[in-house]
Design a protein around this nucleic acid. Structure first.
Lengths: 205, 205
DNA sequence: ACATTGAGCGTACATCTGTACGCTAATTTA
DNA sequence: TAAATTAGCGTACAGATGTACGCTCAATGT
């Protein structure tokens, strides 16, 4: 069991992480947050910050990890819905858009830091995205019959298109998102179909 | 003709733009540059900066526009090479990778600000990317026979995949770039092939 | 019961930032 | 040639930042 002291510490730590997430929006990236701002929002003294994180970088990496985890859990939950039948692509895109809408800031930090200035951050985001690609590669190898290389290339392309659409969607009204989502579905089908054809060509030789 | 005064002013302005470009690298984004740093690098007093730009934002937008222009010119030059024959996809990717290698900082500002915190910046980058998509859409409609919607979706997917690979390539050694480029070619072929099949399905109905 | 630990605070400081203001000196205009 | 314009400079200032240092006092361990 956790002593009342450790409990309080955990609470403050969460307050810091939440404070940081809450300060993120379209015009505010993690790297533009200052230690003092975060501490202020979490209602602790700036210097107390150090009781929880070595520096802002450590906070940020925590957020990336936590965000990636959240995302994967949500997407997995959505995938179960797809198993009930229907177009896997369509349902996955729908799930993705819902997750995006309810957790915009989790996406913001991932999308932004993916092309950010800190190598550790980029690596952390790449790791999270790699999880998605990897899961999808296995899925593709299993259900459709693809060579490992093709499955990998396909999965990577799919994830790239989805994340990219996600970035665009973040700035949009719901109506425009619908258009975007429909186009995304078409693009994903292109990749899936094209991959199938390429695989067939390889087999017939 | 330009008076010697206007000439000198233009020279200083260029020095500012170049100074800013030179300060960009993997760990340094435009938004992390300060007015004073840029002025220092350009060897003028911080306050003289205002004789040329209203603020850093104006400098940045200038850089995005200029960068986009440079890029399109280089890609167009590369496309002429493709007309001599050979795989359009393969040659375009080669051109792209060469441009990337010789102008990394132009890419950095585009890639970074694409998902940056300033709406005007994002819009400016989107505008530049839109040029590429638009050119490619027309090209596709003309050479392959595609419905406008399909051509658009296809062009968008292609550009997305290329730019995304570009972002990844920026951090890589030349050997790894080769692997990346090969995979990118496969992915682009998937999209092209898939689009073709989808178009056929539409026609046969 | 008493000693130790540690989360959070307040003060303090050096550093960097953007930019207001007024000057100089060279170019341009009339 | 005299007047007007203007690129660039130096000084100055208020605000924000990261973090070092030492204190308090409640929780914990013995």
């Amino acid at each position: 069991m956790m002593g009342i002291r450790a409990q309080q510490k955990e609470k403050t730590r969460r307050a810091l992480v939440d404070a940081a997430f809450n300060q993120l929006n379209a015009e505010r990236s993690f790297s533009s947050l200052s230690l003092r701002e975060v501490a202020r929002e979490a209602k602790i003294a700036p210097t107390s910050f150090y009781r929880h994180f070595k520096d802002m970088n450590e906070l940020g990496l925590t957020m990336v990890d936590e965000g990636g985890l959240t995302l994967r859990q949500l997407m997995r939950k959505g995938r179960q819905r797809a198993e009930a039948g229907g177009s896997v692509i369509r349902i996955s895109v729908e799930t993705f858009m819902e997750v995006l809408e309810s957790n915009p800031n989790v996406f913001r930090i991932l999308l932004h830091e993916r092309s950010g200035t800190s190598a550790p951050f980029r690596a952390a985001v790449a790791r999270e995205i790699e999880h998605f690609i990897s899961e999808l590669t296995h899925y593709t190898e299993a259900t459709a019959k693809r060579s490992p290389e093709l499955a990998r290339a396909q999965a990577e392309a799919l994830v790239t298109l989805v994340f990219n659409a996600g970035a665009a969607a973040l700035d949009m009204k719901r109506v425009d998102r619908k258009v975007l989502a429909d186009r995304l579905v078409i693009q994903l089908r292109m990749v899936a179909k094209g991959s199938e054809v390429l695989q067939q060509k390889m087999d017939n030789r």
